[in-house]
Every structure is written in C-alpha cells, then in structure tokens.
Simulated assay, not measured.
Amino acid sequence: MESERIDNAIKTAARELFRKYGYNKTSVAELAKKAQVAKATVYKHFQSKELILHAILMDYIKENVQDILKKSAVATDLAGFLATSILKVSRLTYTVCNEFVGWEFIRESSNAQEYLKTLSEDLEFLLLSSFIQNDAIASAVPEEKLTFLIKTSKNVVFSFAFTAVTDADVRKNFISFQKEILPYLVHATLL
C-alpha cells in the first residue's frame, strides 16, 4: 500500500511538472520535491525519469482507450467503429506525447526516439488486447488482421508526427489519414 501511494505521488508530481515545464526541463530532484519524497526514493520506485514518463503516458492512454471503446458503438457498423476508435486513439497518443514530451524534443533526441519505439510497442499491445477483449471485434476480426490495422495506423501517425513542422501540418495529416488512408486500412482488415 505504501509503495503504491509513493508511486502515485511520483506520477502525479511528474504529470504536473512535465505539463508545466516539459519532460526535458524537469529534473528528478524537482519530481522528488513535488512528490515530497527523497530523490533516492524516486529511483527506488522508478529506475529513470523515462520510466516515470512511460508509466504516466501508459496510465493515461489505457484509461482513455477503455473510455473510447466503451463510448463507441460496435453493434452494426464494425468498419465505422474500427475507424473511429483508431482515429481517436491516434489523436490521443499524438496529443499526449506532444503535451508531456514535445515533438521537437522527440525529433531531435536519439534517447527520445528509442523511448518512442518502446511506447509505440506498448501502445500496440494495449490496443490489440483492448480490441480482443471486445467480444464483437474478437468474433469478427482475426487477431492478425487487427494487428495489421493497429501497427499500420500507428506507423502512419508516428511518421507524420516526425515530419510535420507546424500544428496546421498535423491537422492536415490527420485529415488525410482519416479520409484517405484509414478507410483503406479498415477495408483491408475486414476482407
């Protein structure tokens, strides 16, 4: 119980400080002070600042993915459900990475890019397991086809996150993804 309370205090402090100052500009000492624990305690619970970031991003994304899947109706329009869910999760992931880390930092830092690869793989696993737990999806779409849809969509979104220069570029890319790419990916998944 105490360990969980400390984990939560560190993650809460990290969420606030990363949003306010950014991941790169927040030190572990500042996290410890905000969480009211010793710096060594932070490292006892999380081996690195990167692992704290990973924990808060995955908690946030997992909670929101579950909410997205609950709110979307799957009963009659499986293609629409898949497209809407993938689009919402893609936007969520892009936004949360931008909010906590910043795409400029990710584009410029080899450590951030390695971290992004790990996040990407964990996100893929989270989405796949969430979709498989939905009976309507699991009975209608084989796991390998869901994997194709999730992996391809994720790769497209992450690629334009790395190439977009402005927020307007990002909006255009999401519109293009939604209207021109995603329908074909969903169609190929449901064949």
Rank of each mutant, 00 (worst) to 15 (best):
A40S: 15
V37A: 00
A14C: 07
A73K: 08
Y43I: 10
Q47W: 02
I68N: 05
T93N: 12
E104H: 11
L87W: 08
Y43P: 04
V65Y: 14
S72M: 09
E63Y: 11
E104V: 14
V42E: 03
A79R: 04
I61W: 03
E104P: 06
E99C: 08
L17K: 02
K39R: 14
Y60Q: 14
L69F: 14
G22S: 06
F100Y: 15
V96Q: 15
K34P: 02
N64G: 07
F46A: 04
L51W: 07
A55C: 09
S72Y: 08
E63N: 12
L31R: 01
S85C: 12
G22D: 03
L53I: 02
L17R: 05
K33D: 14
G80S: 01
Y23I: 15
R15K: 15
Y60H: 12
S90P: 13
I61L: 02
E104W: 09
E50M: 09
I61H: 03
L78K: 08
K25M: 02
L82R: 02
C97F: 03
M58A: 10
W103H: 06
A35P: 01
K71I: 08
V74L: 09
E99K: 15
A29F: 05
K44T: 03
I56H: 09
C97I: 06
F46Y: 10
K34F: 00
A35Q: 00
V101W: 09
I52L: 05
I52H: 06
A32L: 05
Q36Y: 00
I61P: 01
Q66T: 02
F46S: 05
E16T: 11
T95I: 06
L51G: 05
L92Y: 04
A14R: 07
N24F: 11
S90W: 12
L87Q: 12
D77K: 02
R19H: 04
K33L: 13
I68Q: 05
T26C: 09
V65Q: 02
K70D: 10
A55D: 13
A29H: 02
S85W: 10
V65W: 06
G102V: 13
R19K: 01
Y23T: 12
K25H: 09
S72H: 03
G102A: 12
V89H: 04
N24Q: 15
K34A: 05
K49Y: 06
L92Q: 11
L53T: 08
F18T: 03
A83P: 08
L78T: 15
G102R: 14
A83N: 01
E63A: 14
Q47F: 00
G22V: 10
R91D: 10
V37I: 08
K71C: 11
S85T: 13
L57T: 14
K34V: 01
S85P: 05
I61C: 05
K44A: 13
S27C: 07
F81R: 06
R19A: 03
I86R: 11
K39Y: 00
L31G: 09
V89S: 10
L17C: 08
A35R: 03
K71P: 05
H45I: 06
I86N: 12
D77Y: 01
